[in-house]
């Protein structure tokens, strides 16, 4: 296991807005003795266009992704949403192009979200992290219902020293991000994220943790606008914390 080479598939939002999430993920994986590789010409998996109905443009991104990652071994991403895109929607995008579809499916079979990779593939729950604080976990939609990852992040969090995990109400409710939705339907999106923030506050947690930067940027934006002191963190950041 120690010599396995892992290829990083970094969500565009992480790459461009929260690169420290990717840095943290690198620390966690390297501390486990893994060798990492990162194709630095990657840009985006195509999900923004796909979700807005622009499938042709999404296909451009998907083809490029396939070409870049085709020769990679195990692929790990700090985003359930991007993994859901590759694992499930590429097949839909290429339903009329069997060759591309097959290539996409081969890549999909070895692409993992970070926490499912740690818990299900590496069978690791204890990564030696330490985070003093009361944490609540937000279930991102595509992670939870797209690729059915629910317990893995919680198991990892429970093994973090000093961390007190509390559940919020409706942790599995959408935070109102939805990509372009947040921009096109700001009133609905705001109502949703404000509910989410209320539930976080009511849980008594000082930190909200998630596995998808889209949701986290949304929640962090609402927390900031409301002047609250809740910390919004990607799970990789928590797992990378050492005493």
């Amino acid at each position: 296991m120690g010599t396995q080479k892992i290829t990083l598939f970094i969500q565009c939002l992480v790459d461009t807005v929260w690169p420290h999430v990717a840095e943290a993920m690198v620390r966690v994986l390297e501390d486990l003795g893994l060798t990492l590789d990162c194709p630095t010409d990657q840009t985006c998996c195509g999900q923004p266009a796909f979700n807005s109905g622009f499938q042709r443009e999404a296909r451009v991104a998907a083809r490029r992704f396939i070409e870049i990652f085709e020769n990679a071994g195990t692929i790990v991403s700090p985003s359930g949403s991007c993994v859901h895109m590759v694992r499930h929607h590429y097949a839909e995008l290429f339903k009329d192009e069997p060759q591309w579809r097959e290539r996409a499916e081969r890549i999909a079979a070895r692409t993992y979200e970070l926490t499912e990779f740690l818990v299900d593939v590496l069978k690791v729950e204890e990564v030696g992290a330490s985070y003093p604080g009361r944490v609540t976990y937000h279930d991102s939609c595509h992670l939870l219902r797209g690729i059915r990852v629910k317990e893995q992040p919680r198991r990892l969090l429970r093994r973090v020293k000093g961390l007190d995990l509390v559940e919020m109400k409706n942790s599995d409710y959408c935070c109102g991000f939805g990509g372009a939705f947040a921009v096109k339907y700001p009133d609905i999106s705001a109502a949703m994220v404000n509910d989410k923030v209320d539930h976080i506050v009511n849980s008594g947690a000082d930190t909200v943790v998630g596995c998808d930067t889209g949701c986290l940027l949304n929640i962090a934006g609402a927390v900031s606008r409301r002047g609250l002191s809740i910390k919004t963190m990607h799970i990789a950041e928590v797992l990378a914390q050492r005493l």
């Binding site: 461009t16 690169p19 630095t40 947040a182 921009v183 700001p186 705001a190 940027l217 962090a220 934006g221």
Partner: peptide
Amino acid sequence: PPVQGWTQSRDLHPLAEETFMERWRRTRK
């Protein structure tokens, strides 16, 4: 515009000064 909707009721974290890919290229290669 056209993305003003986002900040109608929430803030936005700005783009990082250096992307992760740039940093990887700079530090690893």
